[in-house]
Design a binder for these strands. Sequence first.
DNA 1: ACGATATATATCGTTTTGATATATGCACGT
DNA 2: ACGTGCATATATCAAAACGATATATATCGT
Lengths: 182, 182
Amino acid sequence: MDAKNLCLGALTCGDASGYEIKKMFEEGPFAHFHQVSFGSIYPALAKLCDEELISMREETQDGRPDKKVYSLTDNGRQALRKALKKKPADDKLRSEVMVMFFLEEFLEADHLREVFDQQLEFYRRLLAKVEGLDDSGVSHQRLFVRDFGRMFYRSIVGYMEENGHLLFGDKPQAMEKAGTDQ
Amino acid sequence: MDAKNLCLGALTCGDASGYEIKKMFEEGPFAHFHQVSFGSIYPALAKLCDEELISMREETQDGRPDKKVYSLTDNGRQALRKALKKKPADDKLRSEVMVMFFLEEFLEADHLREVFDQQLEFYRRLLAKVEGLDDSGVSHQRLFVRDFGRMFYRSIVGYMEENGHLLFGDKPQAMEKAGTDQ
DNA sequence: ACGATATATATCGTTTTGATATATGCACGT
DNA sequence: ACGTGCATATATCAAAACGATATATATCGT
């Protein structure tokens, strides 16, 4: 699923600018299971306009720079339907942190600890954010996807809290202590 | 962490060919938390040789094509140490399947079911594979990383089995039935 | 003999990334 | 008033990575 189709998919949620689409993949509904960069978004939006799968209007805003707002066309909607008939790629998790843990013998002890603590903090923050969302009015299907994110982050936080001692040879309470600092 | 450092990291496990390195990222110790393509591996190995961070010898095999086996040099070991001092990138999960679930209204019902079943099968297979591994002789640290993979796959399988009904409006037993077919 | 599969190396066009640049605007501190 | 930092907003570009493809060796089954 390339950047064009991801943008089409994002626009099914409503008209949006390139920046807003990026935000949807950073902090919005797609954040916990897909990413896409500005370097892909803007060229994709340009191509989608050329192909008349989306249309664009410029908007002036108070207190903010002007923006270009994109809308799905009917052709765009159809193109998205077509793209969604294909077999999706396999899921991929990419974690440099886990690579580092694997290569632990090459890391200095305090750096390892730092990496661990920051990773735990990273996931705790993500979890807090998605748990603070209001589910009212969310369809069952959308809830499945959102709860997937919750599950994912909870699992990782729980795993790290309970098993971090394997990395440091500490007792399990060491991880809980890190939690108390928060 | 670029392909060069990933190759250096893989070679800490012992001498290996480009193909074997790929296998380590596909089915071996790195499989559940990182990927790297042939298109990256071979140019990276060539550069690492130029930079004398690895050395290469050719080997003849019985019943198989010849292979080029790469080894870490001391310089390579040091370069890896240095690379591992940097702050790792944030973890990224990329799942076209979840994007599809999010865009469920644009999918035909039987295709949605197909995607769901194949996703569940995909993760069940991965889980079976990592659960079948023998942990004896594995260090605590390596076990942390391997158990992370187990946790990850278990969580997803469990989540899908218990919550798939949100996608289909089916009762939870529908997912268990899918499990029985296996 | 052919096709499928595994092992093995390598490449290439395409896609994506992350950093960077530029612009508008606001808030805060000196 | 000015500078800095941050947010919003668009856009680009060199580097990195990808996925598909090609080629080669070898085995097995039909």
